[in-house]
Design a protein around this nucleic acid. Structure first.
Lengths: 217, 217
DNA sequence: ATGGGATTATACAGCTTGTCAACTGAACTA
DNA sequence: TAGTTCAGTTGACAAGCTGTATAATCCCAT
């Protein structure tokens, strides 16, 4: 009656390989077609397995979404976060923060758009996404706490974190970028915007700081 | 054989009444349950008619969405827009603009959230919604053009309209308000934020401007 | 009474997510 | 070496959705 211990490295390897194939297929489908074309059947067929295996591995469609998002995040350029929080100049830290999200949103723009749409339809997935976005908010909190006294934000202090969170959300990057630009292109604009909100002086651009301005444009 | 002319005011009235009942039922369903519960069958049952009638009247689910959105807009507090554009003080005009959208988003918050989600899944509906949002953008454009020279925006002039459009989108109101406040509550914050972006001085609050400050709170 | 437009009833196709018992194969045991 | 056990896979099924097609029905205007 008592289930005996069971562990199979061979088994585990094929299972993990299957998971990877499923996630890869899901990612490809997310990058291409529209959300309506993203069915578990399409994912399974593309991964070369049965739809049921997807259910066994991820529980549900929302589960697959969540794991896919986590995969993107771990793959993403968030490894620099440590360095950003260690940065001496708070303004530079914010600038780097914006750049990280600009890159992440650019790399995963269609996927993020579909994630947002899917989260809007499924309350469970919405809660899961909200929880993951809290990490961004906590990062903003720690940066805001490091702000000195020589700044005067254009919003109440209690709202500063929430406001910055909005400005750093995928929606903001996506809307401002529009169809003709990438979120990456929008980074300078958002930097200026954020510096304006937290009341930091305009940063000396790297080029200007180095070269002593020889010719006007 | 030749179809004779035919027009029936009575008939037309009952048809219109049916349309109204369908739209009312759809609105109720949008305000209550989640988007998954919003099926054409549920709408039809609630309206006391058949699902086929919905198709006859609105063509498709997306068509119903669009007409419902238009209904909300015409019902909404956008009648003041004329007065807002006629306002002498540009800052006051922006303040009123923000208030209008705060009220609209507050009244229709769950509906707007579901519309956004539905638009994310259906490209056609997404295009339709985008087109309707252009009206907001055009309103911002006219207001921005009326800005004088005594302001220095914190973003390039070419990006000012897009930036303001983001700040006035449902997403911004919804995110900042969060679960404990209404978009309406967020209006003062967004006013300050927008004034900061376009480089306008903080407005003298109406109460301060009128009453000569007798007692501190 | 008769014609026309809208609504209804009914059926169907195709798609989706999700659940079920039966099956397969690797690892353990005798 | 041969049988048992368990995880993972599989095909089949249930229920829901949108959208379409077709015939019957109702009701108003002529």
């Amino acid at each position: 009656m008592t289930p005996r211990p069971y562990s199979s490295p061979e088994r585990q390897r094929t299972v993990d390989a299957g998971r990877d194939r499923i996630l890869a297929a899901a990612l490809e489908l997310m990058q291409q077609g529209d959300l309506a074309a993203f069915s578990l059947d399409a994912v399974a067929t593309r991964a070369g397995i049965t739809r049921m295996t997807v259910y066994n591995q991820f529980g549900s469609k929302a589960g697959l979404f969540e794991e896919l998002f986590d995969l993107l995040v771990t793959r993403g350029a968030f490894s620099e976060m440590q360095a950003i929080f260690a940065e001496k100049d708070v303004g530079a830290a914010f600038d780097a923060f914006v750049a990280v999200f600009g890159r992440f949103y650019t790399e995963n723009r269609p996927v993020m758009a579909k994630m947002r749409a899917a989260a809007g339809s499924d309350p469970d997935l919405d809660a899961a996404m909200r929880k993951r976005n809290e990490r961004r908010k906590r990062g903003i909190e720690t940066l805001v706490q490091r702000l000195g006294k020589q700044h005067q934000p254009s919003v109440p202090a209690a709202e500063l974190v929430t406001t910055l969170d909005v400005l750093l959300s995928f929606n903001t990057f996506d809307m401002i970028a529009g169809p003709d630009r990438t979120p990456q292109d929008v980074v300078p604009l958002l930097r200026r915007l954020i510096r304006g909100v937290i009341g930091l002086p305009k940063r000396r651009t790297a080029s200007r700081a180095k070269v002593p301005r020889k010719k006007r444009r």
